[in-house]
Design a protein around this nucleic acid. Sequence first.
DNA 1: CAGTATCCCGGACGATACTG
DNA 2: CAGTATCGTCCGGGATACTG
Lengths: 131, 131
Amino acid sequence: MCDSSYDPAKCQTVSEMLARLGDKWTVLVIMMLADGPQRFSDLKRAVVGISQRMLTLTLRALERDGLVSRTVHPTVPPKVEYALTELGRSFGEPIKAMGGWVFRNHDLIQMARAEFDERNPPAGQKLVQLG
Amino acid sequence: MCDSSYDPAKCQTVSEMLARLGDKWTVLVIMMLADGPQRFSDLKRAVVGISQRMLTLTLRALERDGLVSRTVHPTVPPKVEYALTELGRSFGEPIKAMGGWVFRNHDLIQMARAEFDERNPPAGQKLVQLG
DNA sequence: CAGTATCCCGGACGATACTG
DNA sequence: CAGTATCGTCCGGGATACTG
């Protein structure tokens, strides 16, 4: 990926986007917006557990990267609508690729984890086995 | 992705894998291992800037998820080899999908950022414009 | 309603030292 | 060599209060 036609700048962008995807809220917000434009308060309500602060920061980051558009309706009270841009919608592809892979391999992953946790005692505990 | 055939457990695994991908080192380690099995110290040297601690933690996490295998050669001094499993190699697909998307849209992203940063003053600074 | 500002805590991570 | 243990720092992010 970053091996062929190596471009440090682009590789850094890859890291940045991965880091963004990796945070707790971004994907959830994108998924909500995939259903269509949403107001700030709608998102706040839909994305359970997100704080006002984090919703703002998440949306700002997505807006900055051009994945989300922000349109202010100068009414009173204010009304701000967020929507996925064309770029934002196309971003669904790689996300779906990730999601698809996990779904296909979910059982293998869980089995691997169970096996690992069995081999590696979860915490300091005596192996009570036959005494 | 998580909309159709909704399964909370699988969706959580998706989040977990995304979070893993999002951290600073995981992808770099996977890319190194894509070239073939590597010893601990080789990885340490190859992944510039990673601490011993973080390399260990990263490898443990990947091992637990079944993406990486760890084989100890009981020699002296010790020799431990890490390698991608079949599952680990298949994980390259969605990663490549992400990377491909970013590469294709790199310029759009950069332009969006530049535009955003122009509209939104980077920090509190006077707009020195025509005085 | 849709934010921004401030405070504050827990966890992530680097640095360092020690061990089989 | 390949770790584990311990310590200290930094900052991500939640809670709360205030504003246009």
